[in-house]
C-alpha cells in the first residue's frame, strides 16, 4: 500500500474528516473525534503503522489537543492523529493495548497535562515527584517558585 492508496482508504473510512487529511512532506494528518480515537488508531495499526512515535498534547486554551504520531516502516510514512478533549473532563482511551510504547508516553502526558488515559495499566506521575501539585505544561499553571524571565528580546 502506498501513501495515495492509504489516503483513499482513510477518506472512505472517515468521510466527514476527508478534507482534514493532507499529505505534506510525506506526513499525513488525521483529525478524529475523541470518541473514535482508539478505533482510528487500531485501524491504522492494522494498515501497517507499527510504530508509535510520539504522544503529546497542546494546551489550546479551552481544550487540549492530543497529538499522536504513528509511523510505518513499510510505507515510509508517518501520520499525525489529532484529537481534542475538553479541559474540564480531560480523558481519552489509552492506546497502550495497541502499542506498548504508549505506556511511558501517556504517563508523561498525564504528568504534564493531567489528561487521564482510560485503560492505562499504570497511570502515575513519571517525571515529577508523586506529591507534585498541578500540571506544569498547562498554560494556566501557577507556581510561586517560577521566576519569570524579564522581557528583553
Amino acid at each position: 500500500m502506498n501513501i495515495d492508496e492509504l489516503r483513499e482508504h482513510l477518506c472512505s473510512t472517515y468521510p466527514d474528516l476527508c478534507p482534514l487529511f493532507s499529505v505534506e512532506y510525506g506526513d499525513g494528518m488525521l483529525m478524529v473525534d475523541s470518541s473514535r480515537l482508539h478505533e482510528a488508531a487500531s485501524d491504522l495499526r492494522d494498515l501497517g503503522f507499527d510504530r508509535l512515535g510520539m504522544v503529546t498534547a497542546v494546551d489550546t486554551g479551552d481544550e487540549f489537543e492530543l497529538v499522536y504520531r504513528v509511523q510505518s516502516r513499510e510505507m515510509h510514512a508517518g501520520i499525525f492523529v489529532k484529537t481534542r478533549v475538553a479541559r474540564d473532563v480531560a480523558s481519552i482511551a489509552s492506546v497502550n493495548d495497541l502499542w506498548p510504547a504508549a505506556n511511558w508516553q501517556e504517563r508523561e502526558v498525564f504528568d504534564m497535562f493531567g489528561i487521564v488515559f482510560e485503560g492505562h495499566p499504570d497511570l502515575r506521575r513519571i517525571l515529577l515527584t508523586d506529591d507534585w501539585v498541578g500540571y506544569p505544561l498547562r498554560k494556566d499553571y501557577e507556581d510561586e517558585r517560577i521566576i519569570r524571565r524579564p522581557d528583553y528580546i
Partner: peptide, 9 residues
C-alpha cells in the same frame, strides 16, 4: 545558570 528563569523544578 541557564535554568534560572521560567522553570518550576
Amino acid at each position: 545558570g541557564i535554568f534560572y528563569y521560567d522553570t518550576y523544578s
